[in-house]
């Protein structure tokens, strides 16, 4: 059973702020979807998981420098910039 506490914990993991009403709604949605996912319990354990579709290995790149982005392109999208730095939120509460 998914509890409200679970929903809040998941929202924190995902860094998405949710309101009181949303907690209830998501709880119901999650419950029904996760119930549906439980069908996976029927699958046997001794099957190899497929992480990849194509059997590729060793795709590499040479250690050769290519041009970086011009700084105007970098600083065009962030909302807050200062002296060439991108301003971010503070890290202490």
């Amino acid at each position: 059973m998914i509890t409200e506490k679970d929903v809040l914990h998941i929202a924190d993991l995902a860094k998405i702020e949710i309101s009181e009403e949303e907690v209830q709604k998501f709880k119901e949605d999650f419950q029904s979807i996760l119930d549906y996912f439980n069908i996976l319990d029927e699958v046997e354990e001794n099957v190899e998981p497929s992480f990849q579709v194509l059997p590729l290995t060793n795709v590499f790149r040479k250690d050769e420098v290519k041009e970086s982005l011009p700084r105007e392109d970098v600083l065009r999208n962030p909302k807050h910039v200062e002296d060439g730095y991108i301003k971010g939120p503070r890290v202490v509460e």
Binding site: E64, S68, V74, G84
Partner: peptide, 21 residues
């Protein structure tokens, strides 16, 4: 010469911020 997953130069130490990206 270059970063782990891209071809930006690793020689950034003397340079202006956000110029090796």
């Amino acid at each position: 010469n270059t970063k782990l997953f891209c071809s930006c130069s690793t020689d950034y130490h003397e340079d202006e911020p956000n110029t090796h990206v």
